[in-house]
Amino acid sequence: MAAKRKVGNLLAVAVLSVIIERPMHRYEIASTLRDRGKDRDMAIKWGSLYTVVQNMAKAGFLEIVGSEREGARPERVIYQITDAGRAELIDWTRELIAEPQPEQGQYVAGLSILAALSPDEVIELLGHRLAALDEQIATVRAEFDATSGSLPRLFMVETEYGLAMLDAERAWTRSFRDELAAGEFPGQDAWRNWHIDGMNQDNVDDLMEGGNQHP
């Protein structure tokens, strides 16, 4: 079971993962996270960074070790990780790697209510999704290839995983779309007729009976 964390969002573990290398101020933390693509891996909200760093200091995971000032810029407080912070990072990383957690993605949510759309519209929309996935995969792969020469693979395995997941999503989406386009999806005619008839309650039984086959 996942532990209840004193500071429980993924931005906190991302901060710990970079500040373990050396003391940093918040601007350096943010810059390092951006350079390593952590905003893509963890959907980081940058506006929360100040609060998260403060909360981790209150929790004893970070401590202030000094400050610096450049010209007229505000003074920058420098933090370093504590022994408790190191233990938290190790424990949290173990949990993230070893314990699968249900991820309620928007695509899964959309698929769960797919009957609200006609199969013909779904075919069109899946085509749009495939085009967007092709573009996204090409962008991430280009960034990965450009970075792979400057960072050890150890710091890029999350991007490898992300690409594998995108490839898998694209393959499944293409297969599903092709099945619909060929008219081979179980109960597809009843599904289409339900929309032609105005999603009439009287046709729900036909829709349920026609689509009760599984691959």
Rank of each mutant, 00 (worst) to 15 (best):
K4C: 14
V7C: 02
V7M: 04
G8W: 05
N9R: 08
N9Y: 08
V13H: 10
A14H: 07
V15I: 13
L16W: 03
S17C: 06
V18M: 02
R22D: 03
R22A: 03
P23E: 05
M24Y: 04
I29P: 00
L33P: 01
R34A: 13
R36A: 07
R36Y: 05
K38D: 09
R40L: 14
R40S: 12
I44G: 00
I44E: 01
W46M: 09
S48H: 14
S48G: 11
T51A: 15
V53D: 04
A57P: 06
L62K: 03
I64G: 06
E70G: 10
A72Y: 13
R73G: 13
R73W: 10
I81A: 01
T82Q: 03
R86K: 15
A87F: 06
A87I: 12
E88D: 05
E88Q: 08
L89S: 08
D91N: 15
W92A: 02
T93P: 07
I97D: 05
P100G: 06
Q101I: 12
P102V: 01
G105K: 01
Y107R: 14
G110Y: 02
A116Y: 02
P119F: 01
L126W: 10
R129Q: 11
E135Y: 10
S148E: 13
L151H: 05
R153H: 14
L154R: 14
T159P: 02
E160A: 07
E160N: 08
D167E: 11
W172H: 15
S175V: 11
S175Q: 14
D178W: 11
E179Y: 12
L180S: 02
A181Y: 04
A182T: 06
G187W: 00
W191A: 00
R192A: 03
N193P: 08
M199A: 09
D205K: 15
D205F: 08
D206G: 02
L207V: 05
M208L: 15
G211V: 00
